[in-house]
C-alpha cells in the first residue's frame, strides 16, 4: 500500500499550486506539509524515491497496481503531472537519494523536466551541493540554517515569477 497521500484542500477559485515534498524524517515531513497547506498549496508527500514512482509507473506500464484501485492510481498520476515544484531532501528512505530522484525525473522528460526543484538537506558537502547545481536545481538550503517560512517564501516567489512570465 502506498503511503503517498493526496492532500487536497477544498476547491478555491484561484489556481492552486501543487508541491511534491520528499523528506525521510516524518516529523519534518509533517510540519512542512502542514505549513505549505496553510500557505495555500496543494501538497503531495513521499519519504523515498520508490514511493514517488511506484504508484505511477507500475500502474501505467505493467498493470501491477500498488494502490487501492486503478482510479486511485490514475488520480495520483494526474496529480503527479500537476506538480509545480519539488521540495527535496538529499538523504531519503531506501537506497536511492535525491540525486536518483532528479535523474529519474529528467529521464521521464516532458513537463517534469522543467519542474523547479528546491533541495533542503543537512549536508553541506561541496561535492553534494555542486552535483545538485550541475543537475539544474533551483536552490540548495542547509536545513537547520533556514526558517521554514523563508524557504516557502522563496518557492512562492519563484512560482509567482513563473506565472508572471507566462502571462507576459
Amino acid at each position: 500500500m502506498t503511503q503517498i497521500r493526496k492532500n487536497k484542500t477544498k476547491d478555491k477559485p484561484i489556481e492552486r499550486k501543487t508541491i511534491l515534498v520528499i523528506e525521510d524524517e516524518r516529523s519534518l515531513l509533517e510540519i512542512v506539509d502542514s505549513r505549505l497547506k496553510n500557505k495555500g498549496f496543494d501538497v503531495m508527500t513521499a519519504r523515498s524515491v520508490d514511493e514517488v514512482f511506484n504508484a505511477g509507473i507500475e500502474a501505467k506500464g505493467m498493470g501491477i497496481i500498488a494502490v487501492k484501485s486503478i482510479q486511485q492510481a490514475l488520480d495520483y498520476l494526474e496529480d503527479l503531472e500537476k506538480v509545480d515544484a519539488i521540495w527535496l531532501d538529499h538523504n531519503l528512505l531506501g537506497k536511492e537519494n535525491g540525486f536518483d530522484l532528479i535523474k529519474k525525473i529528467k529521464a521521464n522528460g516532458g513537463r517534469w523536466k522543467n519542474v523547479p526543484i528546491f533541495v533542503i538537506s543537512n549536508s553541506e558537502k561541496s561535492e553534494t551541493i555542486n552535483t545538485y547545481i550541475e543537475l539544474g536545481i533551483n536552490k540548495y538550503y542547509i536545513k537547520s540554517n533556514h526558517k521554514l517560512d523563508d524557504i516557502i517564501g522563496d518557492i512562492h516567489k519563484h512560482l509567482d515569477a513563473k506565472v508572471n512570465k507566462r502571462k507576459s
Binding site: 524524517e25 510540519i31 502542514s34 536545513k143
Partner: peptide, 26 residues
C-alpha cells in the same frame, strides 16, 4: 563529524520549525 552534524541537524530543524509554527499561530 559529517555524520554527527547530519544527525544533529535533523532534530535541530525539527525543534526550530515546530517552534516557528507555534509562534506563527499555525
Amino acid at each position: 563529524v559529517s555524520l554527527a552534524s547530519h544527525q544533529l541537524r535533523t532534530p535541530l530543524s525539527t525543534v526550530s520549525w515546530y517552534s516557528e509554527m507555534l509562534l506563527a499561530g499555525d
